[in-house]
Amino acid sequence: MENGEWRVDASKLKYAQTHEWVSLKGNVATVGISDHAQKEISDVVFVELPAPGRVLKQKESAMVIESVKAAFDIYAPMSGKITRVNEKLKDKPELVNRSPYADGWLFEIECSNVKEWDSLLAGDAYEAVKSAH
């Protein structure tokens, strides 16, 4: 993968229809956006991270990624509480472009309903969503 080392195990990633990737360990999900999504967004200039402790429902808008000419909502792929955010993005939003699956991760969420994992897309299903675009 051109975007550096995997922080997460690629084969175990799942995706939301809205292009977020999710890696689940126990009941903690790490969330980022796919390589396809970062290319669509183009140069990320600012990342408005969610406040730790915030409780979100699945598919609720969690945060915003800004490019020069657009703002993109990033949705919580699973319900739960934000436990950690990627502070590095505050000064280096370009990490989302450079390393969407590793240094450019967005936030961690403590899932309140792990069963939602089943509603997410596996890698091949996500490929199909991408090409449909």
Binding site: V45, F46, V64, E66, S67, V68, K69, A70, A71
Partner: peptide, 13 residues
């Protein structure tokens, strides 16, 4: 600059 805050981009947000 910082136009992504503004109405022509964020619209209702």
């Amino acid at each position: 600059t910082l136009q992504a805050r503004e109405q022509h981009i964020r619209r209702e947000k």
